[in-house]
């Protein structure tokens, strides 16, 4: 992605207020709104937990159903766990989470400065083989869960940043 090529007239209007996550990406209806939740933090298991607790409080206040709440919490837990465990590994670094309330669900953008996703694409693994007693997987479920509960999953490497965006449609 190229750097910002913002004209003078445009910059005075929006460069400061526009979240970084929208720079260089296609604009969606969400970009113009105040986000429902916007938080920057350092990747870590315990921090993920605290951020999710705050997010659930905010989503509850917004009137989401228990099903929609639990879907959002699960998807974002998996995404944030992946960032802490794989993108950053033993190190840590900044994460930015933005959640917007859309007509058809929640729009989420998650940014980090860790390692890029392998091959630069969102993983789409099959479920690991489950054939007890010899094959009982303890991992490899995360992306499967994310894909089950989201649509419009997109990934881009934007300079030093990984940008993952997704939608969590309302449960039936």
């Amino acid at each position: 992605m190229s750097g910002r090529a913002v004209s003078m007239s445009e910059s005075s209007v929006s460069a400061a207020s526009r979240p970084r996550a929208s720079a260089g990406q296609e604009r969606t209806d969400a970009d113009e709104r105040r986000p429902l939740f916007l938080r920057g933090f350092l990747a870590a298991d315990k921090t993920t937990r605290a951020v999710l607790a705050d997010l659930v409080t905010e989503l509850t206040r917004a009137g989401l159903t228990p099903d929609d709440l639990s879907n959002a919490e699960l998807v974002l837990a998996e995404v944030l766990n992946n960032i802490a465990e794989h993108a950053y590994g033993k190190a840590t670094g900044p994460v930015e989470l933005r959640v917007d309330l859309l007509r058809a669900g929640l729009g989420c953008t998650i940014s980090d400065q860790g390692h890029p996703l392998p091959a630069g694409v969102v993983p789409d693994p099959d479920l690991p083989l489950i054939a007890p007693p010899d094959h009982l997987p303890e991992g490899g479920f995360g992306w499967h869960i994310i894909r089950c509960l989201t649509t419009d999953l997109r990934y881009a490497r934007d300079g030093d940043w990984n940008r993952l965006s997704l939608r969590i449609p309302w449960a039936d």
């Binding site: 997987p137 991992g139 479920f141």
Partner: peptide, 16 residues
């Protein structure tokens, strides 16, 4: 009230 894939993996590990 909340279990993620890491928690699921831990339950499977207990079974093993």
């Amino acid at each position: 009230t909340f279990l993620d894939s890491s928690g699921l993996g831990a339950v499977v590990a207990v079974m093993k």
